[in-house]
Amino acid sequence: MSKVFIYPSTSLILSDMVERFGHEPLGVAIAIRERIQTPGLDSPPLQMTPEDPKKGLKYAAVEVPSGVRGRMALFGPLIEEAEAAIIINDSDLAFGCMGCSRTNELVKFSVRQRKEIPVLDLNYPSDEEEGLAFVQSIKEFLDSLTKKSGDRKEV
């Protein structure tokens, strides 16, 4: 079993897929609601304090907006902990959504900087055919992780 960082980190669908294929998803599971009544689309599930953006200074300089640093305080440790990652680019809001585009750039960059871990970088499908290929790619990626971790176990 591998720890798989998922992007968008709020994607319940992605989180569920990772779990079904026997791995541990690293994300912040928030149901994307049909009607949005919270301050943001990815309102944090826990009470954040002004201390969090300060913790985020580990990942982004003080000149970076506080909202980015606060988010990085959540996602940064998950990226560090990850043994693999799945990035879905340009996904639909309903699939899973992160509120801040600047954070998204930094999150994806931070994942890609971890060259020693396998990363699946996919675009969100636009039709059914692409959708099937999309699911297949994720399945194959997760399967390959199982094999690798299995190999490690044998060693």
Binding site: P39, S43, P50, P65, G67, G70, G99, C100
Partner: peptide, 12 residues
């Protein structure tokens, strides 16, 4: 109408 107050810890 906002972007970032919760993650900045200032919504309170």
């Amino acid at each position: 109408l906002s972007c970032g107050p919760e993650h900045s810890g200032v919504q309170k």
